[in-house]
Structure formats: structure tokens, C-alpha cells
Nucleic acid binder design. Structure first.
Lengths: 338, 338
DNA sequence: ACAAAATTTGGCAGCGCTGCCATTTATCGT
DNA sequence: ACGATAAATGGCAGCGCTGCCAAATTTTGT
């Protein structure tokens, strides 16, 4: 028999459980039990199996294990984008909890495209995950059907305005929009504009804006001018957007941005042009990013508990409780820009 | 036989390939071939299999498929953190290419901890991935051994200063540090300070700083004062760090930051305190983040092609070429802060 | 029309592991 | 010391799919 080094060096074919069992002089099932700490075995056996495994550099094959036990330790996580720190934040919260519970997240990105979401969901489902976490409540009909029929826990995150499939963890984007409007109005702003990114893709941003506009309307006001950049949100887009909007509507006294990236861009524009904030122009964002909170003038915005959403979503996906909707709310941050 | 709806509705147990084959009136292997588009089959068979699969709501089981074909379509991606946009950026590049090539990335986070890296690598390897992508060249001995013995493509990213296992894609952090120092010196700065985050964890930042310091030394200069925050990098840390450093060393005329997050924090501090940039104080960062490039005064920094690193790394991991070191370099951005 | 070649098809043995069950061995009570 | 209970162990049948191969079918050449 070939000797193997203890550092994991291996020669020949891939080491299997059978090899370990043979080397330890025990049966496969005994080796399996020891390696998983399941069932009972003597200390002596334990040692010999562990020693054999280590010296052979054995790496268990979870593909085989999962197939045999018919229960995977994978959890699919579907997010729209990796460019916006919001989703890595959610992922971070989910990752912490999932790993802690012995699960392995498998991430897929949709680029905000429902068709793509459908295809990545289908793809993830083929790994027979124990659960799925997806962003938002809006999906194609087939995506919904697949998710419902998978007989696994499904958590929909970051939005509570709509019908969920199983678990819903997030907050109301409509309420966020309304609260933003109320805040601006309560501060006395009356000529309010909007700078946003492509809303046809970002449904949650669209909900916020719709509610924002509605809240203004109820108070007899309206969005004086709006500038929509036909692209994903970014600081630059916010900067350019505000520049263009102010050119068209110089009388604005406040601008609501689709999110903090855009708002920070707007803030930078004002800094560069010497536009006094908040006296000459007020700025309001959404998300409560670090950059917004650490700016010379902390941005007035809505802090969304993104990491917590990921954590709670993951916790519930791992649990076996009933379906639930968890609205964990958001916090309005009265910064120095309104 | 139970009738199933075409929208994927299913009753009873999970649908298997055998079910589809039986429903289509063909053998398993024929159904398998049709579903994968492998081998040959008549159009007639194709239709009946596809129809059967659709009407039964069949979802292939890749766990079983992978085990049988002994070749997975998974690629492990190991990154230190999700909090710093740098790694989501790399992940984004990798994701695009991997998905395009039919692979599914499986992400794991190390929190900059080598022990944790060892454990996540072990864990990922147990899914028998087709390849692995990890950040950096420094690993524990056992991590290295596992990676080397896995007989799969391994790409190490974001650093070229050291020995790689198989594929190395990145740039020289040492060179980045040196170039940064040279830039500051060429602009006439002589009293140079440093504000950084915990370098014991972030080895690449440590390399940059070491090279930076060495380059100053070669020119007869030295780092006048330094402030190291014992935590992860953040805008706030950079802000506080610069504040403390300036208190101790008011004569500094330039500060090198461990990265752009920290540098933006420093920039914000100066804005808040009315410290004129770059006349009174110059600021230099690292990474070339959006926020740094869109600031009223674009930050002088080093643009690291993070997304490209992920893309090239992924491309090479999917390929079967020889081992290689790809240094894709970086770009010094002469902003308005130096 | 008939053999040769090409195309299509189904059967079945695994892939490496886990779960079940039967068996063996150790521990206990009296 | 001896049956009874508990602990430890090994054998083996799958999990759902793919790959191989042989058999069946169709197409082609002359």
C-alpha cells in the first residue's frame, strides 16, 4: 500500500470513504459515522478512522452524501446585482447565519431581469437546495410556480408590499417613500424634485417613488421636476442627474433621490458648484450607506437594515416554522442635508 | 396516472428522469440525452421527451448528475469580505464569466482569517468543484496542500507578489505602494503620513505600505507619522484616523491611505474642517472606487481592475491551459487631491 | 433488393455516500 | 455466571443520473 503524507499529499485516484474505512480496518458505515459524529462508535475506532482520514488526505464528497441522504445543505440566494453594496450587505447577513447553521449559500445574480431570475432560480433549484432566498416579491409566473412547488423554504427579502410565497422579510418601500415625502414637507420644502435611475428594473425604487409622489399629492403638492437616468444607480448618475434637473428647474428647494448612491452624487454636485445645503437645496436619499453617514454633512436618508434582513431571512429559511411576514421597518435619519 | 399542470404544478413525490422517460415512452438514457442535448435522437423523440418534462414540471437533479458524471459545474470562490465593495467587484467579474461558461459559483467568506480560509476551502472542496478562486497568495500550509492536491484549476487573485499555486491574476501591490510614494514625492511632498486599517489581516495592504515606506526610504524620506486603526477599513475609520494623525503631526503635507474607503474618510475630514486640498494637505488612496472618482475633487489613487481580475481569473479557471501568472497592472489616477 | 454503414435507442452498472437492519461485542443486574 | 439490555459494527440497497455498450432501426450504396 502506498504511504501518504499527513499534509494531505495524495497519490493516485481520489480518496474515498471506502479507502479510509479499509485503512482504518473498519466498515464503511462505521467510518461514515465517525466522520460525521453520528451514531455510536468506540473511542478506539474513532481514533483509527480519524487518523486514517487525515493521513490519506481524505476530503468527503458532499455531492455523494447529499444524493444519498436526499437533503442538501445548500441554500440558493438570488440577488439583482453585485454592483450596489446593498445586496452584498444582505448576502453578508445571510452568509453569516447560513454558515453558522451548517449551510452553504449559492449565489446567483439576475441583473434586475425577471427572465434571468427565472433561469437562475431554475438553475439553483436543480442543486436541490434546502432553501431559497430571493430579493423582492415580484417574479414571473413560472418563477413563482417553481418556487412554490420546490417544497423548500423560500424567503423573499427587502420588500413587504405585496403577496409573498412563504417567508417575507423586509420593510415597506411604499411607506419609505411616503415617510420621505412627509419629512421633506415637514421641513417646509415645497418645490420638490426627483432624481432617479431606471425604475422599470428596480421595482422597489419605483414603489418608493410612487408612494412619495402620492404623499405629496395628498398634501396638494407635486413633484415639480424629475430626472430619470436610463441606467443603474451610481454616484455619477446622481451627479449628472441633479445637474440636469437644476438646469431645467432652478427653483427647486429639495430633491428626493432614488437611493443614496444617487443622492451622494447630488451632494457632490452641490459641493462642486457651491450650492449651499440645505439652505439653497435639500437632499434626501435612501439606504443609509456608510458614505452617506460619514459625509461632512451627514445625508438625510432612510436607513434600511439590510444585513439584518439577510440574517433574519436566513434564520427563517433554516427553521421549520410557519410562513411569516416579518416587517423589520427602517429608520429615518435626520441628517444635515434637509 | 396523475395529471400534472403545465405550469410546473406537481403532486406527489419529486419528479425524476425515470418519470419523464416513462411518460415519454422512451428509455432513461434517451430522455437524458434529449434533456442535455447530447448524443443523437430523432425529432419525434425529442418532442415527446420535452413535452413530458414540461408537463411533469421536471427539474433535473444536478447533484445526481454531477455524481454520475464525476465532473461538477461548480467553482468555489473564496473572498475575505463582503463589506468592502472590492470583493463583490471581483465576484461580479467572475460570476459573469463563470455563468457564461455554464458554471455555478459557490462563494465563501473568510473575514480575512487564514484559519477560516482553511475551513472554507475544505468545505468548498467537498463539493468537488471544477475550480477554485481565492484572494491572495498567502494561505496556511494545509490550505495550500489541499488546493494543490485537489487536482483542479486554482486561481489566486489580486496579488502577484509571491509564489502561486497554479493561476495567478492580479497586480503587484508592492509596485502599487512604490508608485504611490513616487507620485507623492514627484509632486514635491516631503512630510508624508499614513493612515491605515488593521494590516495584520489585510496582507495586501501591508505589502503596499511596506513598499511605500521603502520607496520613501530610498529617497531619503520616511513616513513622518502613521495612524493605524485596529479594525477593518471604512470611511469613518479614515476620517477619525486622519483627525488623530493631524493632531499629532500638524506639519504633514500629504497622507497615504491604505485604500480609498479610508482616503474618502480623510477627504471628508478635510472638507469638514476646511483643510484645503491639495494645497494644505494632499491625499492619496488605493482602488479607484466610484465614490473616489466622482468626488468634487477626484481622489488621486490607484485604479485596480478588480472586475477584470475576476473575469480573467474565471476564464483561466475554466480553461485547461498551463499554469500562468497574469499581471494586468493598475493605473495611477492623478486626481485633484495631490 | 441486400449488405454495409450510420443513426437511434434501451439496459444496466456504477458515481460515493447514507440509512436501515442484522449481527456482533461489551456492559449490566442479580 | 448467565440471560438481558445496550453499544458498536458491517453489509448492502439505493439516491438520480450518466456513460458505455450492445441491440434495434433507419439510411445508404450499388
Amino acid at each position: 500500500m502506498q504511504s501518504e503524507a499527513g499534509d494531505g499529499t495524495q497519490t493516485g485516484a481520489m480518496i474515498t470513504l471506502t479507502d479510509v474505512a479499509r485503512a482504518a480496518g473498519v466498515g464503511e458505515s462505521t467510518a461514515s459515522r465517525v466522520l460525521r459524529g453520528h451514531g455510536s462508535f468506540s473511542t478506539k475506532t474513532r481514533e483509527s478512522v480519524l487518523t486514517a482520514a487525515r493521513s490519506l488526505g481524505y476530503v468527503p464528497n458532499r455531492i455523494a452524501g447529499t444524493l444519498a441522504s436526499m437533503g442538501s445543505k445548500l441554500v440558493g440566494v438570488v440577488i439583482p446585482s453585485l454592483s450596489n453594496i446593498v445586496f452584498p450587505d444582505v448576502l453578508r447577513g445571510a452568509n453569516t447565519v447560513l454558515v453558522g447553521a451548517g449551510f452553504q449559500p449559492v449565489v446567483a445574480v439576475t441583473d434586475y431581469d425577471p427572465e434571468r431570475e427565472e433561469s437562475v432560480v431554475e438553475s439553483l433549484l436543480s442543486w436541490r437546495p434546502a432553501g431559497m432566498m430571493v430579493a423582492g416579491l415580484e417574479h414571473t409566473e413560472r418563477t413563482g410556480a417553481m418556487l412554490r412547488n420546490a417544497r423548500i423554504r423560500v424567503a423573499e427579502l427587502l420588500d413587504t408590499d405585496g403577496e409573498g410565497i412563504d417567508i417575507v422579510v423586509g420593510f415597506s418601500n411604499r411607506k419609505a417613500g411616503r415617510v420621505s415625502a412627509q419629512h421633506l414637507m415637514s421641513r417646509g420644502y415645497r418645490c420638490i424634485g426627483y432624481v432617479g435611475h431606471d425604475l422599470s428594473l428596480d421595482l422597489r425604487a419605483a414603489k418608493r417613488f410612487a408612494a412619495f409622489r402620492a404623499a405629496l399629492g395628498e398634501a396638494g403638492l407635486s413633484v415639480i421636476g424629475e430626472e430619470i437616468i436610463p441606467a443603474a444607480s451610481s454616484i455619477e448618475a446622481g451627479r449628472d442627474g441633479l445637474a440636469r434637473l437644476l438646469e431645467r428647474c432652478p427653483d427647486l428647494d429639495a430633491v428626493y433621490f432614488s437611493n443614496d448612491d444617487m443622492a451622494i452624487g447630488g451632494y457632490f454636485h452641490c459641493l462642486a458648484r457651491g450650492i449651499t445645503i440645505p439652505d439653497r437645496l435639500a437632499i434626501f436619499g435612501y439606504n443609509g450607506l456608510d458614505v452617506a453617514r460619514s459625509a461632512p454633512q451627514p445625508l438625510s436618508t432612510i436607513l434600511t437594515p439590510r444585513v439584518t434582513v439577510g440574517e433574519i431571512g436566513a434564520r427563517l429559511v433554516c427553521s421549520d416554522g410557519p410562513s411569516a411576514v416579518v416587517d423589520i421597518g427602517f429608520e429615518l435619519i435626520e441628517g444635515a442635508t434637509t
